[in-house]
Simulated scan of single mutants.
Amino acid sequence: MSDLSPYDTLGVEESASFEEIQRAKEILLTENEGNAQIKEDVEIAYDAIIMDRLKLRQEGKIKVPEQIRFPEKVVEAKKSPISFNYSGASKRSPNWLTDLIDQPSMQELSISGLIFLALILLSVFSQDSQILPLLLTFGLGTSFFFVFRKSKAFWRSVGVSFFGFVIAISLSSLLATVIANSGLSLGFSNEQFVSLLTFSLLWLSANFTR
């Protein structure tokens, strides 16, 4: 990997966004956790790209995100699991939560949003109630696709997608029951209402988890 350019080492294009570069770095570090040499090469390539971006910013050629203007502070913060607030109290960052939460790009939000919007419209306006289970299955598969696309870990993606689906359909069913018991009219069947909410929650899960 040492003979490759920094961008080739991370497997990204030179036009890649900061989010794409950072995500590629995190994926490579996770996949090569036991290989110290590869991890070192990845860190060196990442730092080289950041310094290159800072140089371009100083020349007025690009706009660099705020979080990479001072990379030495970012590195220092990553090395220490303890952070201090102004009152002097310490806090420990939960690594499992940091690994689970993702910050999607507008393109990812738009593409997945169109797919889930189509599923919502089909579930709400379809006259055949037997199609709803098929649409929900497709929604689960879509959620898995977007999570796997980011994490590149098959079983992790299966677990995240399935767990998100169970939570989504459980919350949707509970809310539908509460509304039905209150006497409010939804304008469509409970099954359609559950599908609508489930797809909305699956969209959130597919984009903001990895």
Rank of each mutant, 00 (worst) to 15 (best):
1 M>I: 06
5 S>N: 08
6 P>R: 05
7 Y>H: 13
12 V>G: 07
13 E>L: 12
14 E>T: 13
15 S>A: 12
19 E>H: 09
21 I>K: 02
21 I>V: 11
22 Q>G: 10
22 Q>R: 14
24 A>D: 03
25 K>R: 12
29 L>V: 06
30 T>F: 14
30 T>L: 14
32 N>T: 13
33 E>K: 07
33 E>N: 10
34 G>I: 10
36 A>W: 03
37 Q>K: 11
37 Q>G: 05
38 I>F: 05
39 K>E: 06
40 E>K: 09
42 V>A: 11
45 A>G: 10
45 A>C: 10
47 D>F: 09
47 D>C: 10
48 A>T: 11
49 I>H: 04
52 D>M: 13
53 R>T: 03
53 R>H: 03
54 L>C: 04
55 K>S: 12
56 L>E: 04
57 R>S: 13
60 G>M: 00
60 G>T: 01
62 I>T: 04
64 V>P: 02
69 R>W: 04
71 P>F: 11
72 E>W: 09
72 E>R: 07
72 E>P: 06
74 V>S: 14
74 V>N: 11
76 E>C: 12
76 E>T: 14
76 E>A: 15
77 A>N: 11
77 A>C: 08
78 K>M: 08
79 K>H: 13
81 P>F: 03
82 I>V: 15
82 I>R: 11
86 Y>K: 14
86 Y>P: 06
87 S>F: 13
88 G>V: 07
92 R>S: 13
93 S>I: 15
94 P>C: 14
98 T>Y: 06
100 L>S: 08
100 L>D: 08
101 I>P: 10
102 D>K: 10
104 P>A: 05
105 S>Q: 14
106 M>A: 06
107 Q>T: 05
109 L>G: 02
115 I>C: 06
116 F>E: 00
119 L>P: 09
119 L>V: 10
120 I>A: 14
123 S>K: 08
125 F>P: 06
128 D>M: 00
129 S>I: 11
129 S>R: 07
129 S>M: 08
130 Q>A: 14
132 L>E: 03
133 P>L: 00
134 L>V: 08
134 L>K: 07
135 L>D: 02
136 L>G: 04
138 F>M: 15
139 G>H: 10
142 T>W: 14
145 F>D: 05
145 F>K: 10
150 K>Q: 07
157 S>Y: 12
157 S>E: 08
158 V>N: 08
161 S>E: 01
163 F>D: 09
163 F>G: 13
169 I>H: 02
170 S>H: 01
170 S>C: 04
172 S>Y: 04
174 L>D: 00
175 L>A: 07
176 A>W: 05
176 A>R: 02
176 A>E: 07
180 A>K: 07
181 N>H: 09
181 N>R: 08
186 L>K: 02
187 G>S: 03
187 G>R: 01
187 G>M: 01
188 F>M: 06
189 S>I: 00
192 Q>M: 00
200 S>V: 12
201 L>T: 04
205 S>V: 06
208 F>S: 00
208 F>M: 01
209 T>K: 03
209 T>M: 03
210 R>W: 02
